[in-house]
Nucleic acid binder design. Structure first.
Lengths: 336, 336
DNA sequence: TTGAAAGCGGTACCAA
DNA sequence: TTGGTACCGCTTTCAA
């Protein structure tokens, strides 16, 4: 069933059918109704491919996701669902491209074969080949998380630096003078993963500025990773009174491990985190944290991308989100 | 840059360029090389849309995912990544369609506008509107997880019934006569979610058959959900010696809660699960479990779908996987 | 207000 | 071994 057949059945030309569907030109109400009834009766829907070819836009966005063997935390994956929904709300579809590491064919297919109108890049690194490539090609894209070339492209990101600094201020104000920071795994730091990098830097800066003791540790994205890191921290700095982490995969393990060591939260140790609401509320006890607002970020990334596609000339959008810390009772004054 | 331009630069016809690219007809080595060098020099890649239109296939598969407000467990999301990789390995792309609930437009777009060659359906329910629709339309699709109409379409599924029965046998053999089963949330049962349904049934059957005491409980997909369920179970049946669960989101909470109640694993209580390796190994202590082999299932689903697309006439493939339980030490003889 | 026809960028058949 | 050309199904300009 194609547009020609509809045209014949309705006794009009193909262009009239097209205009009835697009509304881009006046059509007498009577013919419009006739055409519409034929369309409904036939259950006709225009071919997306043909439209894309003629019209020059696919109404599809590419989403580049990291390959499985990388640590894609389940919460990173929430972005995938959120992006798909945000796009669907705007009548766009999302084409997935597992990329990074050795599998770049899918990525090349998306841009090279023009299967998509624009691209969303997530899990970006400081030196990001794909971002560089897209910039060079002038292909519309937005990253979720910055790269080292942040002025060169549009992005949406969480202000890890600011959030870490803010939490350090809050802890300091409560009398904490010995604070531990639990980061993402060492290898992510090695790969110049933005949040790990910026958070660590902000932690060390705040520590120096405020004159606070403590230490930073990388930690595997797992409960068991958290157990060993807490063991390590309590051995090296038994006097620690607060723990700050951006590793939500480890958060549950952190709470367990502290309990195992007989440290009560918040009486003995305060815990603060940057983590999704889900994780922060599900651990026992719940943790005072700044949300990672995946849905909001995804929507804004999609909107920013659609704007870049329709107005490639306008200024690049840079959106730094800084959600506030929600008190869930895991933070208290420092034990003397 | 299009095929005409390449043809002109190489001094051949468009068809020759096309044949050089597809290899569907003999081309003299010398012209082949000439054409290839022009192509490389120009960085030319044929337009996917034009090819799709002419050739009648999009080389894209649709993946229908449940909307966010449903319980998008990390386990489910692993499938998304795994399916994308499996497809990429076969030079196919994956188009995401959030569906279920009130958002069906994206789904209709995929099939109605023929954006994809076939569809993978996940999170299927017993009565599944989408599966029914696709069956009626004769559209190629494969489900990950069965529906009530399992003979009507191809599927890949985990044998929850068999696995639950098997674990009950193993526990029985170890002397357990009082076994609790922890299911997915009540609402998933209400929605006739296959694994929840079949597992519960298998549990009750085994209990009757073996003459074992115990009880089944639904449980929210979270640690806190697990805590209350374990509280409940230990209050109702203090003599319980084994816990079996298919709720991997709750597994960590189950272990914590047992510990909180002073029950050691496996000395006081044995724990068995159907869960991803990642979760089963990350909880403390690790749990003896049957893997949910997401990667394997995704690959097989993609392959089955590609076969359906190329040979729509062949028999529907039904693939029931039954991974074996991997001993991680959380199961022991029943305490007397 | 509507129709005819030239694209969009490929594929593949029919000739040569 | 290669070229010419009629599609694929839709959009949009130009004419009527």
């Amino acid at each position: 069933m194609n547009i020609r057949e509809i045209a014949e059945r309705a006794g009009v030309s193909r262009s009239t059918v097209s205009y009835v569907l697009s509304g881009k030109r006046q059509v007498t109400e009577v013919t419009r109704l006739r055409v519409m009834s034929v369309i409904d009766e036939a259950g006709y829907r225009p071919s997306a491919m043909a439209r894309a070819l003629a019209h020059g836009e696919t109404r599809t966005l590419g989403l580049v996701i990291p390959p499985l063997h990388h640590h894609l935390s389940s919460e990173q994956l929430q972005f995938v669902g959120a992006v798909a929904e945000a796009a669907a709300d705007r009548d766009y579809d999302i084409l997935l491209s597992p990329s990074g590491g050795d599998r770049e064919e899918a990525f090349d297919r998306l841009v090279g074969e023009r299967k998509v109108d624009g691209i969303l890049l997530m899990e970006t690194r400081w030196h990001d080949r794909r971002a560089r490539l897209l910039t060079e090609m002038g292909f519309p894209f937005v990253t979720i998380g910055r790269t080292g070339a942040e002025r060169e492209h549009a992005w949406v990101d969480l202000d890890y630096s600011g959030l870490v600094a803010e939490s350090m201020r809050q802890l300091f104000a409560l009398g904490h003078r010995n604070i531990a920071f639990i980061n993402r795994p060492q290898e992510m730091l090695d790969q110049e993963y933005g949040p790990a990098l910026r958070s660590l830097e902000a932690f060390e800066n705040a520590r120096t500025r405020l004159g606070v003791d403590g230490l930073a540790r990388c930690c595997e994205d797992s409960a068991s990773g958290a157990h060993s890191v807490i063991d390590d921290i309590l051995e090296v700095v038994p006097a620690v009174t607060a723990v700050l982490t951006i590793n939500e995969q480890a958060l549950g393990g952190v709470m367990e491990a502290l309990q195992r060591h007989g440290r009560r939260v918040p009486q003995d140790v305060s815990v603060m985190a940057i983590a999704s609401v889900r994780v922060a509320t599900q651990v026992q006890p719940a943790v005072t944290a700044a949300d990672v607002p995946a849905e909001q970020m995804s929507q804004q990334a999609v909107d920013a991308l659609l704007r870049r596609i329709s107005d490639p000339g306008t200024a690049l959008e840079h959106l730094l989100l800084s959600p506030s810390f929600l008190d869930r009772g895991s933070v208290g004054p420092a034990r003397r």
